[in-house]
Simulated scan of single mutants.
Amino acid sequence: MGALQPWHLIILVLLVVLLFGAKRLPDAARSIGKSMKIFKAETKDMRESGDADTTTAEVETRQLPASTAPVQDSKDQQLAELQRQIDDLKKQQAPAVADQVHRNVS
């Protein structure tokens, strides 16, 4: 019942031709083909360079902790400051939220 019948495909093709026009369809098909070709080439490159990338990533991760220690401290301080600001905002909003809940219940 839910299967695609041949006459469904014919109607679909006719609708596409009517909507986009016969002149635009070859250009659209050409651009889709180019996009697929680029996509396939990129995925092939990713598969081929997968082993080389993991080796490079391991080297980079070994070097990161030594060079980012001061940066990590400043990020921790920024994070603590932001957390403190969030807590202050929550404290300020708590009475307003309680009043709003009280109004909604009444």
Rank of each mutant, 00 (worst) to 15 (best):
D45T: 09
D45Q: 12
D45P: 00
D45I: 05
M46R: 14
M46D: 04
M46N: 06
E48Q: 07
S49L: 08
G50V: 02
G50K: 09
D51C: 03
D51W: 08
D51V: 08
D51T: 05
A52I: 03
A52F: 05
A52L: 09
A52T: 04
D53V: 04
D53N: 11
T54G: 03
T54D: 06
T54P: 02
T55I: 12
T55D: 08
T56M: 12
T56F: 06
A57I: 14
E58G: 12
E58Q: 13
V59H: 10
E60T: 05
E60Y: 15
E60P: 03
E60M: 15
T61D: 12
R62N: 13
Q63C: 07
L64Q: 03
L64A: 06
L64H: 02
A66L: 05
A66G: 02
S67M: 10
S67Q: 15
T68C: 04
T68E: 04
T68N: 04
A69C: 01
A69P: 00
A69H: 01
P70G: 00
V71E: 04
V71H: 08
Q72I: 06
Q72C: 07
D73R: 07
D73I: 13
D73E: 14
D73N: 07
S74Y: 04
S74M: 13
K75W: 14
K75R: 13
K75H: 10
D76C: 00
D76W: 00
Q77K: 09
Q77F: 01
Q77E: 05
Q78L: 15
Q78E: 13
L79T: 00
L79M: 13
A80G: 01
A80L: 03
A80M: 04
A80F: 01
E81G: 05
E81H: 07
L82E: 02
L82M: 11
Q83W: 03
R84N: 10
R84Q: 15
Q85H: 09
Q85C: 01
I86S: 05
I86W: 08
